[in-house]
């Protein structure tokens, strides 16, 4: 990350691209988030870290309508999108890549990407999206007719990320993109995140791999038991003795 980029703005602007305000959310009767706030500005990579069960996935699910928000507000691009279902968010430019490398197992790689472009009606734009994703992941281009269910974990994660990119999103929500992958695929995931960031895509990334995430994050939030614990720039949290003790093994 050498010079050339515009000066980084350390604090959130008045109107970030995505803002999660004091959100309480859960599943049925189960309350998981007890007032969580976070913000992502255009073009920023924001990390979300915390122990298992802290509610990291639930934040992404609250944003995408998979978890029920009982209080608080979620705003995107000036609109209130609290409780809006994922399929309505896609046309607004929000892509969600859930935890667990989920793919349509009985469909080919190409069909998976095609489903990612479901809301893209313009044939030219679809074509362009396919070449962009195949350029980013040449391995998928070689295997476009393979059934996604028969691929390795790392390859499936590429399919899942590629599928999210097909709509040319402005904001991508990624849940544990490197979890359970072989080291070379972990490296590939982080390289990909960096190159997407360089292209101006805003991302909210949930990760177990705290050190690598904080190293590339503009901002990060540390969550515990459904509440905000710490926040700051990636570098701040990386230097924070508490984060170091809890997550970086110091």
């Amino acid at each position: 990350m050498t010079g050339g980029a515009e000066a980084r703005i350390p604090e959130p602007l008045a109107t970030p691209l995505l803002s999660v305000d004091d959100v309480h959310a859960g599943y049925g009767r189960v309350r998981v988030l007890h007032g969580v706030s976070a913000a992502v500005e255009a073009g920023q990579l924001v990390g979300l870290i915390g122990p298992n069960g802290a509610g990291k996935s639930t934040i992404l699910k609250a944003i995408t309508g998979f978890a029920r928000v009982s209080a608080g507000r979620i705003r995107y691009d000036g609109q209130d999108v609290t409780g809006v279902r994922a399929d309505r968010l896609v046309p607004l430019g929000i892509a969600y890549v859930p935890q667990g490398r989920l793919v349509f197992a009985q469909m080919t790689v190409h069909e998976n990407l095609e489903m990612g472009a479901f809301t893209v009606r313009d044939a030219g734009a679809r074509q362009e999206a396919f070449s962009r994703v195949y350029d980013l992941f040449p391995r998928l281009a070689d295997r476009r007719t393979q059934l996604a269910g028969t691929m390795s974990g790392g390859e499936q994660q590429m399919v899942a990320i590629g599928r999210g990119l097909m709509v040319r999103p402005r904001l991508m929500l990624l849940d544990e993109p490197s979890l359970g992958l072989a080291p070379r695929f972990v490296a590939l995931v982080f390289e990909t995140l960096q190159s997407l960031k360089a292209q101006g895509l805003a991302m909210l990334v949930v990760e177990q791999n705290a050190a690598q995430t904080l190293a590339i994050a503009d901002r990060a939030y540390l969550l515990e038991l459904g509440r905000n614990r710490l926040e700051g720039t990636g570098a701040d949290l990386l230097a924070n003795p508490e984060t170091r003790r809890l997550y970086l093994g110091d």
């Binding site: 998979f66 896609v90 969600y96 989920l102 793919v103 990612g116 999210g164």
Partner: peptide, 10 residues
């Protein structure tokens, strides 16, 4: 195959 991912596809 996966209704949640289908939703995430729009």
């Amino acid at each position: 195959q996966n209704a949640d991912v289908a939703l995430a596809c729009g």
